[in-house]
């Protein structure tokens, strides 16, 4: 395959845009999604939640979201836990099911509307 040549500043910026995920994961991203991956979380299905988060981000081409994992925070009865930190506000969602993930991403991560029926805690 003939490699694409950069013939203008726009071409260069297109490559920069397409490569954004290469550096955005390192700069921390604007919004952070954290999945509880303690033993309790994993037992309750956190791994599937994390997989679903990753594939939903890929589907929506969201490359500036930082996805982290964290250990047990003590609310084992509400695992899997998923936190969203957006504009300085941290919201915790409990007993998250894989099918909830697209809703949380669409509503909260993208549009900034907290999904009230799943939220179990928040900190500013």
């Amino acid at each position: 395959m003939e490699q694409k040549k950069i013939t203008s500043l726009d071409d260069l910026r297109k490559i920069r845009e397409n490569s954004k995920d290469l550096s955005s994961a390192r700069s921390g991203g604007g919004t952070t999604v954290i999945v509880g991956m303690g033993t309790c979380g994993i037992a309750a299905g956190a791994r599937e939640i994390l997989n679903e988060v990753m594939s939903e981000l890929a589907r929506r081409n969201l490359d500036d979201i930082a996805v982290q994992t964290t250990g047990c925070i003590g609310m084992c009865q509400d695992e899997p836990l998923l936190d969203v930190i957006r504009s300085g506000q941290r919201v915790t969602y409990g007993r998250v099911k894989p099918e909830d993930v697209p809703t949380i991403i669409a509503e909260h991560v993208v549009n900034g509307r907290v999904v009230e029926k799943l939220a179990i805690g928040r900190a500013d």
């Binding site: 995920d21 994961a25 390192r26 994390l50 890929a58 996805v67 982290q68």
Partner: peptide, 9 residues
């Protein structure tokens, strides 16, 4: 497009 959630440098 694959998004990598973590980069190990």
């Amino acid at each position: 497009m694959t998004i990598f959630r973590s980069h190990v440098l």
